[in-house]
């Protein structure tokens, strides 16, 4: 296996990782500030992708489609937060799991009712399609490079938001001591709605960006949701930094495992068995990674000590 191929695969792992980060960041933020497990986060990802596909089909503009994804997902987030989530903050995780599981069912069926059962069309814009040649001779799709760029920019933006702005200070304060900041005159209800909308918008953005190179269909959110949960658990729930490291770890493990495990097995067995056994083990690899991390550090890499 050539060095160039390995480098290209590392880029692929990186790209998968930063997109996961967009999902995981919202999830971990919502948990950190409100203490809420939101299984319906994948549905917001789906809402973003469908809104983007709808607007792209109507206007032909990819940028407008991205805006629509952000707005639609944030709006759905605000509705969900004010109607349902608000009543769940004081409940235990079990109620939250069940309520948001119910929301997944509702979102999926409503989307199917509105858009039908066939996958929708959404493509990257012409000015981002096709490959470029990187230094070292790697031919790599421009769009995927753009995804890496957007993911890193959002990560940087989130860091700046939480560290450098008044809203960020309130968010961090909300994570530490809810009662105190409420006593200091911060409208905690509005802060929660805002944080939830922000997380939802990030999920919607991820859905639209990834939807352009995948399939926009009902149920697209669930596999990503599970991966995003793996990410935030590895990183430590509530930690944005942990979500970033966890996302890259999961992205790289998933991508590189699929390539190198079959090669490893080929050293000890015949090629046909090796590809199958390798593929089986690689689909389990991120879950193995997660359980190893948790056995080693029961609250994740950057999680607060229990």
């Amino acid at each position: 296996m050539s060095l160039i191929l390995i480098l290209e695969q590392v880029l692929n792992g990186l790209q998968a990782g930063v997109m996961l980060f967009l999902m995981a960041a919202g999830l971990t933020l919502i948990f950190g500030v409100m203490g809420l497990i939101n299984l319906a986060h994948g549905s917001l990802y789906m809402v973003g992708a469908f809104a983007a596909a709808g607007v792209a089909a109507a206007t032909g503009s990819f940028l407008l489609a991205l805006v629509a994804a952000l707005v639609a997902a944030a709006a759905a987030g605000v509705v969900v937060e004010t109607v349902v989530m608000r009543r769940l903050y004081a409940r235990d995780h079990l109620d939250q799991v069940l309520a948001t599981f119910a929301l997944i069912l509702i979102f999926s069926e409503l989307t199917r009712w509105a858009f039908g059962s066939f996958p929708l069309y959404l493509n990257p814009p012409d000015w981002l399609s096709g490959p470029v040649t990187l230094p070292g001779g790697i031919r790599y799709p421009v769009y995927r490079l753009a995804l890496i760029g957007i993911g890193l920019a959002v990560g940087l933006g989130l860091w700046a938001l939480t560290r450098r702005t008044r809203l960020g200070i309130r968010i961090r304060a909300g994570e530490n001591d809810r009662e105190m900041i409420a006593a200091l005159g911060v409208d905690i209800g509005r802060l929660y709605t805002l944080v939830f909308a922000l997380g939802a918008a990030l999920a919607g953005l991820a859905g639209a960006l990834v939807g352009a190179i995948q399939s926009v269909q009902v149920g697209m959110g669930e596999p990503v949701l599970i991966l995003a949960f793996v990410v935030i658990v590895i990183g430590g729930i509530g930690s944005i930094r942990g979500a970033f490291v966890g996302a890259l770890l999961v992205g790289l493990t998933d991508t590189l495992g699929g390539i190198f495990l079959p090669e490893l097995f080929k050293l000890v067995t015949d090629p046909a068995t090796a590809t199958q056994a390798g593929a089986s083990l690689s689909s389990m690899s991120i879950y193995i990674l997660m359980s190893l991390v948790l056995i080693w550090r029961p609250t994740g890499l950057f999680g607060a000590k229990a």
Binding site: E8, Q9, N12, Q15, I213, Q214, M220, P223, T255, I259
Partner: peptide
Amino acid sequence: TDYAAEIA
């Protein structure tokens, strides 16, 4: 859903 690694 992502085939970048296979395409490479």
